[in-house]
Each structure stands twice: as structure tokens, then as C-alpha cells.
């Protein structure tokens, strides 16, 4: 029995961080905004880690899944706004649609792009992201480049007070729940055959095949899981917090890059890494914006270069080595 429980120890530090963040945000005045941002980055890191960290494939178009998730929520709200008895159910419908759309897109992209490897895959995913954005703008899908604005729809259907609470508080709580869920799924994958298969294919795809691993299947599993979480994050954080969606914003490659930085900074393929990465990235971005506004990137770029050249395993990689044979090792993966 104890052995069974030990398997779940690594979730303890992750959940501790999330619970602490929640209480700090709730009880320290003026902190909720920062906490919300940290939760967003942790969630983003955890979600992307399931694909990037576990498979080693670089998806430069990851933000596209957040984009379609945002559209999913936006479409549900704008199209169903006339049905007043739906109430808060409209949000549920929005998440369902976001999930459906990100699943469909990840199936389509996965079937096409996951046949490619390395640089070809990375370039193809950039193509998917940009192509989708310009298709929406060019063919005027979902209102094209004018985007969808649904503040009034939310206010109408939920009432102004509920809508405000949703935008300023509950949306962030949803992000927290999504982040926690992503952590559970990550650990479940790591402890199951899926995780072993992904590690094997990340390290040597051809050898993995010869060992009996259906690499395509496991890549697709990781890809869809990761993309679905991205869709949910988009729906919760982008659509509900800021009730409008414009194609150039939700397909902005910058977010993919932020996600990559978080995963690498913390330690790719680890459970705790993306959380550590999200916290450090979020906090430094926040305070750099306060103290040296406009120069965050100028400071970030060299830091990234240094981290990658000198500490390729990320923070968790270093911690793991340090605590390898101690009792703490059970908590750190």
C-alpha cells in the first residue's frame, strides 16, 4: 500500500504550490493579478510539457490550440447567447466546444505533421499556426479579422455581477483546476507504459520502434492530450478573462515561445519542472515589466541563451541530481 502511495508523492509539491498561490492571491490585497498570471504560466508549462517535454518534438504552433480553444468558448457564447435559460451552462458548453475543436485540430495536425521529424516538424507546425490564422482572416471565418467580441453577451446571460466575478476571479480558478488536472495526467502518463514509450521515442525513435513501440500511437496520444489542455487554457484564460478574440492575438507565436521557455527552464519531461519554470518566468516577467518596462525581452534573451548552453537539463535536472539518494527524491520528478 505504501509503495502505491509513494507513486503519488510528486503531486504533493505541485499541489502545495497551487494551494499557496491561491491563498496568497485571495488574502494578500493586490496580488490576485500576479497570481493569475503565474497560474496561467504554470498551466501553460504543464500542458505543453506533456508533448514537448515528453516527446522532445518542438511544436512551434502550440498556440494555435489555445487559439481554437478561445474560439470554441467565444462561439458557444455568441451563438447560444439567445437561449437565456442556459445560464452558467453556457460556460460548460463553451469548454465542451473548446475541447472538441482542439481535439479535432490536433487530430488533423497530428495525422499530417507527426509523420515529420525534427526541424521539418517544427517548421510544419509554424505553418499550421500561421496558415490557420490567415485562413480565418482571409476567408472571413468567424467574423474574420474583426474577431468576436462578446462582453455584452456574457453580461446579458449571466448578469453583470456574475459576469464580473467570472472574468476577474473564477476564470483564474478554472486555470488553476486545469493546471492541477494537467499535473495529474502528466504523472499518470509517467507512471504508465505511455510514459516509458514516450521516453524511449524521445531518446531514439528508431530504436523504440524496433523495441516494439508503436511510436505514432504514443506521439498522437501525447499530442492530443497536450493540445486539449491548451484548448481549455485558451477557453478559460483568454476567452473568459478578456471576452473578445482577434486572430492575430490568439495565434501569436510569442506564447508558444513563452511555453517553450517555461518547460526548458524548469526541466523538460519532469512533473515539477514546468511549475518551477512557470513561477520563475512569471515572476521575473512581472517585475521586469514593473522596474524596466519595455526591456524585459532585452534581458530575457541572453538569459535563455545562457540557460540552454550551460544548464540544458533545467532547474529540475539539477535538483534531481542533488537529491538523488535522499528521501526527497520521491517528491521530485
Amino acid at each position: 500500500m505504501k509503495k502505491k502511495l509513494i507513486k503519488f508523492y510528486p503531486l504533493i509539491p505541485v499541489f502545495t504550490v497551487y494551494i499557496l498561490l491561491f491563498f496568497i492571491g485571495k488574502n494578500v490585497p493586490g496580488m490576485w493579478q500576479l497570481v493569475a498570471m503565474l497560474l496561467f504560466y504554470c498551466a501553460l508549462g504543464q500542458a505543453f510539457n506533456i508533448f514537448l517535454g515528453m516527446t522532445g518534438y518542438v511544436d512551434f504552433g502550440y498556440v494555435a490550440f489555445m487559439g481554437v480553444g478561445t474560439y470554441g468558448m467565444a462561439l458557444a457564447i455568441t451563438r447560444l447567447a439567445s437561449i437565456e435559460e442556459l445560464g452558467i451552462g453556457i460556460i460548460v458548453a463553451g469548454f465542451a466546444l473548446a475541447l472538441l475543436m482542439s481535439t479535432l485540430l490536433s487530430l488533423a495536425v497530428g495525422a499530417v505533421a507527426l509523420r515529420l521529424r525534427g526541424a521539418y516538424f517544427a517548421i510544419a507546425t509554424i505553418g499550421v499556426n500561421e496558415g490557420l490564422r490567415f485562413l480565418i482572416e482571409g476567408a472571413r471565418i468567424w467574423n474574420g479579422s474583426e474577431g468576436l467580441i462578446f462582453v455584452s453577451d456574457i453580461n446579458n446571460i449571466l448578469g453583470r455581477d456574475t459576469a464580473d466575478a467570472l472574468m476577474t476571479f473564477w476564470a483564474d480558478v478554472m486555470v488553476l483546476v486545469i493546471a492541477a488536472l494537467a499535473a495529474v495526467v502528466t504523472l499518470y502518463y509517467m507512471r504508465s507504459k505511455i510514459g516509458y514509450a514516450l521516453t524511449a521515442l524521445r531518446e531514439d525513435e528508431d530504436a523504440a520502434k524496433v523495441m516494439g513501440i508503436n511510436v505514432t500511437k504514443y506521439k498522437i496520444i501525447a499530442f492530443i492530450t497536450s493540445s486539449c489542455f491548451a484548448g481549455l487554457i485558451g477557453a478559460a484564460s483568454w476567452a473568459l478573462k478578456t471576452p473578445y478574440v482577434f486572430p492575430p492575438e490568439v495565434f501569436e507565436i510569442q506564447y508558444t515561445i513563452e511555453a517553450i521557455i517555461i518547460v526548458l527552464l524548469g526541466g523538460a519531461g519532469t512533473l515539477l519542472g514546468p511549475v518551477a519554470g512557470g513561477l520563475i518566468y512569471g515572476i521575473s516577467k512581472y517585475y521586469l515589466a514593473v522596474y524596466v518596462p519595455g526591456f524585459q525581452l532585452l534581458i530575457f534573451a541572453p538569459i535563455i541563451i545562457v540557460i540552454i548552453t550551460l544548464f540544458p537539463e533545467g532547474i529540475l535536472g539539477m535538483l534531481k541530481n542533488r537529491f538523488q539518494n535522499t528521501g526527497l527524491a520521491h517528491f521530485i520528478i
Binding site: 524521445r202 531514439d204 530504436a207
Partner: peptide, 9 residues
């Protein structure tokens, strides 16, 4: 011929 372990594991 040249061993191909999963190095990180």
C-alpha cells in the same frame, strides 16, 4: 552495432 540506449532514461 553502435549501442542505442535511451540515454536519458
Amino acid at each position: 552495432q553502435i549501442p542505442r540506449p535511451f540515454c536519458g532514461a
